[in-house]
């Protein structure tokens, strides 16, 4: 495990072991806060920050904590970090804080944070753990952003609406109106839309991966006999 490369950590976190599409951890915030790109990205970045800090903290303390009490300690650390992140968002991005509401403090219960602490941070060094936190968080952000884009464009015909919540005044110009006089498709915004959308995105990812797999396989097949001959 210790020889895990940084690039592999990044690839695992963002794609191969993506929390939203593959591991299906942290579905509660994923489904609840992905009704627009901005909400999704905001939530994703908050989670990334929490993951990064908690992973680093847990990695540093991994030799001090007895295995019997590690889970309560992890939860304590995560809860502290999330509270700090929550207060920071409340202070600097009050608009986003109102939009995301209860789901920011609920990052504590997000299984993917505890999951990374348990399965990665408590076994690896600080740098790798920090990298893993960022990679996992980016994967989550990617999932949230894609799902948010899907639901927002279908549901209200826009992209990046309310971007000012994240980026300040200039973000208002970011909002794209995909179609004029769009009636809206309420289902995409409502919770069922999140489930259906996530299902479709997972299917699309699986198709991508299956294609990639198929591209690799013939190459192996050709290489096979040559190796046997050599």
């Amino acid at each position: 495990m210790s020889e895990t490369g940084y690039l592999k950590i990044l690839k695992d976190g963002v794609w191969t072991q993506n929390t939203g599409f593959v591991v299906l951890l942290g579905l509660c915030p994923l489904l609840a806060t992905s009704n627009s790109v901005v909400n999704g990205v905001g939530m994703g970045l908050a989670t990334t920050l929490a993951l990064f800090i908690s992973n680093v903290a847990i990695s540093l303390s991994r030799n001090l904590v007895r295995p019997e009490v590690r889970i309560p300690v992890f939860i304590m650390v995560i809860a502290c970090v999330v509270t700090a992140v929550e207060l920071a968002i409340r202070g600097f991005l009050p608009g986003l804080y109102t939009a995301l509401g209860i789901f920011i403090p609920l990052i504590v219960t997000n299984c993917c944070v505890l999951g990374r602490a348990e399965s990665f941070a408590c076994k690896h060094g600080m740098l790798k753990s920090g990298m893993d936190g960022i990679a996992t968080g980016l994967g989550m952000t990617l999932a949230l952003a894609l799902l948010g884009a899907l639901r927002e464009s279908l549901g209200q015909g826009t992209l990046f609406s309310q971007a000012d919540l994240l980026f300040g005044e200039w973000g208002k110009h970011l909002t794209l109106h995909l179609a004029s006089d769009y009636r809206g498709f309420l289902l995409a915004i409502l919770p069922p839309g999140a489930f259906i959308g996530l299902g479709c995105l997972i299917a699309v990812k699986n198709v991508f991966d299956a294609r990639a797999q198929r591209r690799i396989k013939p190459a192996v097949a050709i290489a096979g006999p040559r190796e046997a001959g050599a």
Binding site: G184, F185, L186, L187, A188, L190, P192
Partner: peptide
């Protein structure tokens, strides 16, 4: 139901 929920 999809229609009823989306286009009341």
């Amino acid at each position: 139901v999809v229609l009823l929920v989306s286009f009341p």
